[in-house]
């Protein structure tokens, strides 16, 4: 086991199908308890990368180490660390939710009381406790997705790998899924999450890797990525009082780059809106203005992706 707190380390992953290079030298690592997002459009190589990480696909090159154990299709002990949730549903439609969970639970090495207890817990988490004994093919799309995810969490993995878990899901189920992942992330489980949706990556992930055409274009926290593009946060203040004096006062603050005054308030462009908000508000108050509303608009990963690849995430 690595002492450095790294749960997953991939180095220079490569995979070629015929003459199509699907993954072309991808390297990244995930710390224990960290939620890491792979953000990229269709065909970027997300699934191929994940398949190599989970030992489902023979690599053409590179290394994968999970919790200190080298991964390969035959590396049973490395696989025990991971809970893998495939992009496409992988459940038996003719078995009930409980039977599906029990079956895969056994493959994850659970048995007896532990198995039953974990199955009940997971049914609760994925919100299928009241439909536990219904066949999966009687479920809605969202319920099937939740079951698909539940299977991956059964053995309380140290690394949960989710491949686009919200594709084709209604908004309600999607929210439930995101909440679940958020909760798991909060419980100290490391998560590798792929998506084409920048809102999901922004909401869930501590760090994001931007992947396109088999290459990792950039990597970091949302802030670091945004900084890469050179964009700034915008703060819209609705305020009354001496706006001119207020504008002068806030312009002098460290980190404020631009202030626009208009009827009913100020628009500020700052380096790090969240960090400077308290200071900003007290400065405004001292300058004699009263604030009625504050809106923080942070530049998003969509813009970053556009900047890095010259194309939109989805068309």
């Amino acid at each position: 086991m690595l002492g450095n707190g790294i749960i997953l380390e991939c180095r220079d992953l490569r995979k070629t199908y015929g003459d199509r290079v699907a993954v072309n030298g991808v390297s990244f690592s995930i710390r224990r308890g960290e939620t890491y997002g792979l953000l990229g459009p269709n065909g970027a190589g997300k699934t191929t990368t994940i398949s190599m990480i989970c030992g489902l696909l023979e690599r053409d090159g590179g290394t994968v180490v999970v919790d200190g154990k080298p991964m390969s299709p035959s590396a049973v002990d490395a696989k025990a660390v991971i809970g893998y949730v495939p992009q496409d549903l992988a459940i038996y439609p003719d078995l009930s939710a409980r039977e599906n969970l029990r079956f895969f639970g056994q493959l994850y090495g659970l048995s007896g009381k532990t198995l039953s207890a974990r199955v009940d817990e997971v049914l609760e988490v994925i919100g299928l406790a009241d439909r536990a004994n219904d066949r999966a093919d009687s479920f809605s799309g969202g319920m099937k997705r939740r079951l698909n995810i539940g299977i991956g969490m059964l053995h309380s993995p140290r690394l949960l790998v989710l491949d686009e878990p919200t594709v084709g899901v209604d908004p309600q189920s999607r929210n439930a899924i995101l909440d679940t992942v958020d909760t798991l992330g909060g419980q100290g489980i490391a998560v590798l999450y792929t998506t084409q949706y920048m809102e999901e990556a922004e909401r869930l992930c501590d760090r994001v890797g931007i992947i396109d055409e088999g290459r990792l274009k950039a990597e970091g926290t949302r802030r670091e990525l945004v900084a890469l593009v050179g964009q700034r946060d915008r703060i819209a203040l609705s305020a009354q009082g001496d706006l001119e004096a207020t504008a002068r006062a806030v312009s002098a603050l460290d980190g404020v780059e631009q202030v626009n005054r208009h009827e009913g308030g100020l628009d500020l462009f700052v380096k790090d809106a969240r960090r400077m908000l308290p200071q900003l508000l007290s400065t405004v108050a001292n300058a004699g203005a009263s604030v009625s509303a504050v809106e923080v608009v942070e530049p998003n990963l969509e813009a970053v992706f556009l900047h890095l690849t010259g194309k939109a995430l989805r068309d």
Partner: peptide
Amino acid sequence: QLGVSRRMLSTPTAV
């Protein structure tokens, strides 16, 4: 087709 075989392979189960 269901991907269940693949999923089995992702668990710590020998081929």
